[in-house]
């Protein structure tokens, strides 16, 4: 899920009801499904200088993920994601890496609602945490599958819908824990005699808007991740986890709720990085299938018919 990982490979996202939209599962409904996506870049920003690296070629990151969303109430959802990530450099000698990345968990709550004009405004509060699921190394960027930081985030969101048209704006603060390396010294802009790396926190802004009906969601988004601190990759150096990684991206998202199987939906995404610093100029696409299950007691008997 986007803000949790932003490597040189700027992770793609595939969305259904996620931590980044204004949609909610109804009480006792559970939506789950797999997604798969790929992002890749050939050019990257070394500080502010855009360049290629002939010893990396095109760096690809493939992510397979299971995401779930449960309606505790109509206004309170919990969500999780479990990603498996694989990286590969298209040139050079460096081996790609793979493994389970970071488990994420969110609570999403409609804190306030109001009818304004012809539409409906929701004020949403989202809290989330993530933690690495395997002992992958974060110290081999850009082929590392993650940054290995434990994170916590707080997000404020406003979602407005009038008829079938909507817009959602959110701002996020990401707390990032220190990360431990396999080595006991490292250099940033100075020497450090510790295996611990202080990770700068990060902010994230996401704006999305489009058409939303019970069958279709067609939306465009723009977002911006900013690392609050960190330093630039020096010339011809390799990237490091505490670099100042910034990225501005645009993309589209489509969701189709089928009418032939109740509760089955398909999603597809595509996006591209339009500006950045110490990140890859990545393009991503992906898709997923979701299925909604009804755990509400009153409808229990109906479940099998779905």
């Amino acid at each position: 899920m986007i803000p949790l990982l932003l490597l040189l490979s700027a992770q793609q996202q595939v969305q259904a009801q996620t931590d980044i939209d204004g949609l909610f599962m109804e009480k006792n409904f559970f939506c789950i499904g797999p997604t798969i996506g790929q992002s890749s870049w050939k050019e990257y920003w070394e500080g502010t200088n855009k360049r290629e690296n002939l010893n990396l070629g095109r760096v690809r990151t493939t992510t397979a993920m299971v995401m779930g969303n449960y309606g505790v109430t109509d206004k309170l959802n919990i969500l999780f994601g479990v990603p498996y990530v694989k990286t590969k450099a298209g040139a050079g000698q460096l081996a790609g890496q793979k493994g389970f990345q970071d488990l994420s968990f969110f609570i999403k709550w409609i804190a306030a609602e109001k009818h304004i004009g012809k539409g409906h405004l929701k004020g949403i509060l989202i809290g989330g945490v993530s933690t690495p699921l395997s002992d992958y190394t974060p110290d081999m960027l850009p082929t590392s599958i993650g940054l290995k930081s434990k994170t916590a985030m707080l997000r404020l969101m406003a979602d407005y819908q009038a008829g079938n048209w909507f817009g959602t704006l959110s701002g996020t603060y990401n707390f990032r824990s220190n990360v431990e390396l396999d080595r006991n010294t490292y250099y940033t802009t100075q020497m450090h005699y510790t295996n611990e790396v202080r990770m700068p926190d990060a902010s994230y802004i996401n704006l999305r808007a489009g058409y939303r009906s019970t069958t279709w969601i067609l939306e465009a988004f723009a977002d911006q991740w900013k690392t609050l601190g960190g330093y630039d990759i020096t010339k011809n150096n390799m990237p490091f986890i505490s670099n100042k990684m910034n990225a501005t991206r645009v993309g589209v998202h489509i969701k189709y709720e089928t009418d032939f199987i109740n509760g089955l939906s398909f999603v597809a995404d595509a996006g591209t990085t339009v500006a950045g610093r110490n990140v890859g100029k990545s393009t991503n696409y992906g898709g997923g299938i979701f299925y909604i299950m009804d755990f509400s007691k009153k409808k229990k008997t109906d479940k099998s018919s779905k």
Binding site: T73, L76, I107, V129, L154, S177, N178, R198
Partner: peptide
């Protein structure tokens, strides 16, 4: 339900404050 939300929020707040203050690193040298 309110309890679940309350507890979860408390956990989240505790986690966040823990992370915010444990960033101090003591370097060997």
């Amino acid at each position: 339900m309110k309890k679940i939300f309350l507890y979860s929020s408390l956990v989240a707040i505790a986690a966040i404050s823990l992370m915010a203050c444990s960033k101090q690193i003591n370097e060997v040298n």
